[in-house]
Design a protein around this nucleic acid. Structure first.
Length: 467
RNA sequence: GGCGGCGUAGCCAAGUGGUUAAGGCGGAGGUCUGCAAAACCUCUAUUCCCCGGUUCGACUCCGGGCGCCGCCUCCA
């Protein structure tokens, strides 16, 4: 099925037409590892994850890259302050990234390259840019000359011909030809040895943008299908990537650019510089589940600002528990017979789900389809009209949908009641048999206080842990 | 100052030039239950920030206003 996505390059929703169908080659700007990523960072990463899963759901194959920037100004600065070398300083933050990705159920992309492992590629790229006349040297550093690249500014829509009134201009420590020219290779003799590499054009280190050009083209080719990142990266990072890549190869760089809106908190964007952010561990510490975070992030539309809040996480858990509750009941369904109504419910939901995803990754509508199926299945169940095969159909439909969202099925946790909990549970059952309801209710209340919720059914009594 | 985006019920959040403006959470009533829980049924925006305009018809298109957000500088 065709996937339509908003393309920043054209400001329109356009079909995603892979260069080598059915494979989609996509690159996502990951994190700069100088501290712990916050939920806002993970909105982009979760969106990327949901997108690649959705693409597969729609019949594509995906080759994806998520990069790790492990050398830049802030990293060097902070490593020096902490009296560590580059590897020593970044290692814990890379581990934190991987831990958070696991927590949020994010698939490992095919490649997760690190900048420091691609110095030869970056150096080669700079050499090619120089050969094509896109660079100049000043104070030993190599700059990209934007005047040599007429396309510059197309992605961001910025006028780079001059500096507009009111625009802030960076204090120019170097002798740049144009304020917008950016550095490809920095000559910095005052920085530690571990942040310097040999290159034909002098010992130094890469600028911020070059690693993404080098790594994306290495793994995905000179021209590839899709590039994703947070909206703040449109300028200058992505603009510069285009200039560097296309400038070096003479070929188009990326066909489709996708940008994820920032998370809002109290109507302000969440950012490290403002300090108004939460990390994943922060949120877990407050008692929220990983699933609720993923549901909230994945279930909002990537092109709209999302108001992040703890109330939203509560609402997410409640919605998830409704879905999980159905799945549990489906698995207990008895009764022979054809799939009946359930079949149609599944087909309808699948159609809506698929079309929603294909329409600019409309995950809120896709989730509405999930809930629609849940409601219909619950109704059939309540009327005793769901057979075992019907329940199986619903379950496998939900399973397919979960291949995109990753949180729709309850965890298979080999969850057992503790001895104390089991004793209370047994006592309540015994009390109920003897119709000593006061005693039974007391046991139930104590279990409730421990986070165990009971549900009496015709047959057995079912229990589940809250959250 | 320049460029871009947003403003939909108590909360989160889709969507459309003209059928009943998705879905979830929350709330109210009912069914079921020993009572609950869960589930089911019913209800919960005569209305989409405000004001004009285009149109047979706008919440959806255009203009203006108000409010908010982002980028233009390191930031997902």
């Amino acid at each position: 099925m065709q996937m339509r996505l908003f393309n920043t390059l054209t400001s329109r929703v356009e079909p995603l037409e892979p260069i080598s169908p059915p494979e989609i080659r996509m690159y996502a700007c990951g994190l700069t590892v100088y501290n712990r990523g916050h939920v806002g960072n993970y909105r982009t990463i979760v969106t990327t994850d949901v997108l690649r899963r959705a693409l597969r759901y729609l019949g594509f194959r995906v080759k994806g890259v998520l990069n790790i920037t492990d050398v830049d100004d802030r990293i060097i600065q902070q490593a020096v302050t902490a009296d560590q070398d580059l590897q020593g300083f970044t290692r814990p933050w890379i581990e934190a990234l991987e831990e958070d990705m696991t927590t949020l159920g994010i698939e490992r992309p095919e490649f997760m390259p690190r900048a420091t492992e691609h110095l030869p590629e970056m150096i080669d790229l700079i050499a090619r840019l120089t050969a094509r006349g896109h660079t100049y040297e000043a104070d030993g550093s190599i700059y990209f000359r934007i005047a040599s690249f007429p396309e510059y500014g197309r992605l961001s829509g910025l006028d780079v011909k001059g500096i507009k009134a009111g625009a802030r201009v960076d204090t120019d420590k170097y002798d740049k030809e144009n304020a917008r020219d950016f550095v490809l290779w920095k000559f910095k003799s005052d920085e530690p040895e571990w942040a310097q590499w040999d290159a034909p054009f002098g010992r130094g280190r890469p600028g911020w943008h070059i690693e993404c050009s080098a790594m994306s083209m290495k793994y995905l080719g000179q021209t590839f299908d899709l590039h994703i990142g947070g909206e703040d990266l449109i300028f200058p990072h992505h603009e510069n990537e285009i200039a560097q890549s296309s400038g070096a190869t003479g070929e188009p760089f990326v066909r489709h650019w996708m940008h994820v809106k920032h998370l809002l908190i109290d109507d302000e964007t969440m950012s490290k510089s403002k300090g108004n952010f939460f990390t994943i561990p922060d949120i877990l510490e407050r008692g929220h589940s990983p699933d609720s975070i993923r549901y909230l992030l994945a279930g909002s539309h990537y092109r709209k600002p999302l108001s992040f809040g703890f109330e939203g996480l509560e609402q997410s858990v409640a919605a998830l528990e409704r879905i999980w509750g159905l799945v549990q009941r489906l698995d207990e369904t008895q009764g022979d017979g054809p799939e009946g109504e359930a079949r149609k419910a599944c087909t309808d939901a699948e159609t809506t789900f698929r079309e929603a995803l294909a329409d600019d990754l409309n995950t809120p509508e896709a989730l509405a389809a999930v809930h629609g199926l849940v409601s219909r299945a619950n109704a059939l169940l309540a009327e005793g009209e769901l057979t075992r095969s019907g329940a199986g159909a619903v379950r496998s439909t939900l399973k397919g949908m979960d291949s995109v969202f990753g949180v729709l099925l309850p965890k298979e946790a080999a969850d057992q009641l503790s001895a104390e909990e089991q004793a209370l549970f047994d006592e309540r059952q015994e009390a109920r048999r003897q119709r000593e309801f006061a005693r039974a209710d007391e046991a139930r209340a104590r279990l409730e206080a421990m986070g165990i919720v009971l549900e009496d059914t015709r047959g057995a009594t079912r229990w589940r842990r809250r959250r």
